[in-house]
Design a protein around this nucleic acid. Sequence first.
DNA 1: ATTGAAATGCCACAGTGTGGCGTTTGCTCC
DNA 2: GGAGCAAACGCCACACTGTGGCATTTCAAT
Lengths: 198, 198
Amino acid sequence: MTTAPQPATLRERKKQRTRRVLAETAVTLFTERGFDETPLDALLDEVEVSRRTFFRNFRSKEDVALTALKQLWSAYLDVLDETPKSGRLVDVLRDAMLATVERMDGDWYRRFAPTLRLVARSAALEGHSLRHCAEMQTRIADRLGTADSLELRLLIEFAVAAWRCALDEWLPDCDPGELPACVRRAFASMDAGLHLEA
Amino acid sequence: MTTAPQPATLRERKKQRTRRVLAETAVTLFTERGFDETPLDALLDEVEVSRRTFFRNFRSKEDVALTALKQLWSAYLDVLDETPKSGRLVDVLRDAMLATVERMDGDWYRRFAPTLRLVARSAALEGHSLRHCAEMQTRIADRLGTADSLELRLLIEFAVAAWRCALDEWLPDCDPGELPACVRRAFASMDAGLHLEA
DNA sequence: ATTGAAATGCCACAGTGTGGCGTTTGCTCC
DNA sequence: GGAGCAAACGCCACACTGTGGCATTTCAAT
């Protein structure tokens, strides 16, 4: 569960509420009409907020669409901080991802699945998504690396690549119960892939 | 060598020439003033072409900046088509990249190195670059895959990731003679990375 | 209740990318 | 070498994204 710490002040709760409504409405609206085809104003009219306040809460149109994805990565980094690093690092990264996926609640899954479909359909979203992955990779490296080695960099690249492959396998059905199996399968296939023969 | 087939017609040569001048000027201009900080009009004024003709030759401001990168991938796909696929596929992909890098001429290297530095400094360029890599991955899969398997997908992800790591190692010096060694080192470290222990 | 800070809304602007349309340029056929 | 034709070009106007200034509202805290 992504436990929202229930901010004490009313003002803060209102702000969080508009953030949440914007992210949810964005996913449904973009799903209905397409990301590239839907002007931002359509979202602003729907939620009834001004352009100004939108850009105080989100960096861009892509940003709001990818909220669920970013929440996952944020949770992943949290899990990684709590994880003891022992044994093969690729297993550490995989188990952290499994634990993260386990923590997310049903509401998140209802936003995550359509988000993935949006990314698959829009080049702009794919670009932002990949860039965000790259940023997460540097964060992961900071948390793992005593020294910044080529091997470590490769390892993290491979783990994130395996994660993206797992999502591709999960995408057709998007059954929350199946995601861990997809992750395990992708990570288990890494060695076989690397040694694949023609 | 990237042998430009010398288009017979003068009209076509003029078009190619403006394309080339735009790409070259873009790299130098963006290097001097920064990609995000330089409006497109600055490039158009410098080369003296209208906005309309620019967008007939390039899809976006990012596109023109990444010309050298796209040329490399185009050459890579050509090499891959001529390559017999035998043995470990990861070696096939690596050797094809080595052969591609070998083919590029000095002029290309003079544009490629600053292009990489631009990508490292601009989030927008990094996003476009990563998306282009993703597109190339599907192209590679088409050329390799009889059936679309998880292992194949992973393999291609890993190979492209290794290539990007090689570029990161090459970036500080950007000595054309050193690039093959960086590629070999990155690909040789894949197994070690995958089995890295904490 | 008053005061101060934070959030919002409105407005204007820079920049990117697209489409229409008339004009120029170079190719081709006579 | 001239006429006709298609492609490329330049100019103009427009939609959309994202930013900054400034007045107004809303909540918090005393």
